[in-house]
Amino acid sequence: MTRQLDDVDRTILRAMTADGRQTVRALARAVGLSEPSVRERLQRLERDGVITGYHAALDPASVDAATAAFVALRFEPGEAAKAVVNERLARETCVLEVYEVAGEDCYWLKVRASGTDALADTLDRIRAIPPVRGTSTTIVLRTVFERPLGPDTGPA
């Protein structure tokens, strides 16, 4: 559901994106509303699908996932092929994100692994998915920055 965010919603989301562990009391102080009002807004933002979850941001090297790569994936056209690929990719814990794209490739994947050997094993399993016709992999040398999605993401 798409809903219009007002300034108070954006302020709450900005504060939550900066520190997701803030208490409702701290959020209420930040936006100048009562705690019940802020709690109600948070529940509405969750119910409307604006807030989709709460997560800890982890250091990839600390959780044995220091090697990042982007994989362009091509496979046979059709909904049946897509369903097979989706189901198999969902099983691969190294695959963090899957984007359906326009152009020569069908999907772009963001993958994290402990090293190049683990990445190679993951790529072997992906290439073995029946409708897959090919992959192209780019290994990330260094992450310059990653920006979390926030209420102000997008053009200024």
Rank of each mutant, 00 (worst) to 15 (best):
A80H: 06
G53N: 10
V101I: 12
R44K: 05
V144D: 07
K110P: 04
E97M: 08
N86Y: 15
E76Q: 13
R3H: 14
R88H: 13
T52Q: 03
A113W: 15
E146L: 11
R125N: 04
Q43P: 01
R74N: 02
R142Q: 09
A66D: 00
D105K: 10
E46N: 00
A28K: 05
D19H: 10
D19V: 06
R88K: 13
A56D: 06
T153F: 13
F145N: 02
V85Q: 09
D121F: 12
A61K: 07
L149N: 10
E100P: 06
A90E: 08
A102T: 14
I51R: 03
R25L: 03
A113C: 14
W108V: 11
A69E: 09
L89T: 12
S62L: 08
P131L: 10
D48Y: 14
F145W: 13
V101Q: 03
V24I: 11
V8N: 04
A65M: 07
R74F: 10
L141I: 10
R3W: 15
R91M: 07
A57G: 05
A61G: 04
C94L: 07
D9T: 11
Q22E: 02
T135R: 02
A28Q: 05
G32Q: 06
V50H: 04
V84R: 08
A120P: 04
T93W: 07
V50I: 12
A81S: 06
T52S: 02
L58W: 11
F70R: 09
